[in-house]
Simulated assay, not measured.
Amino acid sequence: MSESTTRLKRATIFDVAAEAGVSRGTVSRVLNGEPYVSAAAREAIEAAIAKVGYVRNTAARNLAKQSSGAIALIVHEPDSVFIDDPNIGAILLGANAALSAADYQLVSLIIDTERDSHRVTGYLGGGFVDGAIIVSAREDDPISQAIADLRLPAVMVGRPDNQPQLPWVGIDNRGAARQITERLRGTGRNRVGMIAAGLDRDSGRDRLAGFREAMGEAFDDTLVARQRFYTYAAGVAGMAELLRIDPDIDGVFAASDAIAAGALETLRNAGRAVPRDVGIVGFDDSSWALRAQPALSTVRQPAGQLGARAAELVLEQVRTGSLASNGALLSTEVVWRDSA
């Protein structure tokens, strides 16, 4: 059987006009919400639309308007992080809620490889989206530069130091890390280390800087286990490294809740009780924090609000044709539970 006999033909405005017994112009006026159409004609057209299965060609309409009606959410993370990190999902949902309220569609684009970067760059240059939200941008990220070159309305979640000066929304990672580390030390811990991650982006570097500040003269760089991603596996490996370096370690700041949960597994397997032998704190107040045993002391960051605010800033640029305010910091808070 040939393709032409199996593919359904898309109903057109001419089919609607023929079925309703009116002109194409009358159908067009109804579709565009224009007046000067009789109630009888409008009723006949609506019935014809339902009968022939007409669906408006949004792509053609958007081409005429020079607008796609879509905003891209670009996540620069491997698959493992996308699955492990609940913050990405919360950012996505927050952005989607704000865009939906403005009748915009969210398009998710995941960058895991260099090939993905080239593919996404080409997609962004094709006019398929009106703007972009960038999550987890790294140093020398080609996507951020491509967006700046395209003059595409965009907002970063976070603010890498060496990226184009795009508007951004974020949190005070450094101050929050310092605050929770100071509280951990206040429980009487003497040998405190950190499982650091994401050091190729602002969040990871700032959390390490905040930890260093809180430790002061007690900071020991050998007690910093550096991992690449904010994952459970990074916590397992990082905690094993810290125990090899100093079996007497009694406090750990994990750069994310997923990392802290992995560290808890390593500590259990090593026969170390939490918080009796080792106090541990995380960062995010994600679902990992409540699933962990014991429940994690952590920093609560408003991931959903970050996504919503980023979407609002992008839409502001789309509407006005100019850059949004340069940056916005949202507040965090320490949530103290049983792990420390």
Rank of each mutant, 00 (worst) to 15 (best):
D103L: 13
M194A: 01
S68P: 14
S203Q: 03
S80T: 14
P294L: 05
A310L: 09
Q66C: 07
P294T: 15
A177F: 05
R42E: 07
S136R: 01
D85M: 09
I45V: 10
S108L: 14
V281D: 05
A260L: 04
A196M: 03
G210H: 03
G175S: 07
N87S: 13
D285F: 03
L63M: 10
D15H: 12
P294V: 15
A59T: 03
L267K: 10
L73T: 08
F14T: 15
I143Q: 01
A20I: 02
E213F: 15
A146F: 07
E312S: 02
A72F: 00
G33P: 06
A240L: 06
E139N: 05
D338V: 07
Y230T: 02
S108V: 11
S38I: 15
P302R: 00
L73Y: 06
A17K: 10
L242F: 14
A176H: 04
A72Q: 00
S117A: 11
E213M: 15
L208H: 04
D84T: 01
P167E: 11
E312V: 00
D116I: 01
V334N: 10
A261G: 09
R244M: 05
N87D: 02
R309C: 00
T332H: 07
E77T: 14
V81Q: 08
P302L: 02
R276S: 15
A64L: 15
I143P: 03
E139S: 05
P35A: 04
G262N: 09
P78C: 08
I111L: 09
A177T: 12
D161L: 01
L92A: 15
A39E: 04
A209M: 14
F82T: 07
G210R: 00
V22E: 04
G304C: 04
V335H: 08
A17R: 06
G170V: 03
G307W: 03
L184C: 03
A240P: 14
Q227G: 11
L290N: 15
L73F: 15
A289P: 08
V107G: 11
G282D: 05
A60Q: 06
A137D: 02
A197Q: 13
R61K: 07
R159T: 00
P247I: 02
S325N: 12
I74Y: 03
L223I: 04
A289T: 12
L315W: 06
P35H: 14
S339V: 10
K9R: 07
L296D: 02
T298N: 00
S4L: 05
L152M: 08
K51A: 14
E114F: 08
W288R: 01
Y36C: 08
A48M: 11
G188Y: 11
N326R: 11
A137E: 08
R272W: 14
A237N: 13
R151K: 09
L92Y: 11
S256M: 11
P78M: 09
V278Q: 05
A90G: 10
D85G: 07
G69A: 07
V252S: 02
S287M: 10
P35L: 00
D284T: 07
A328N: 04
D220L: 04
A324E: 03
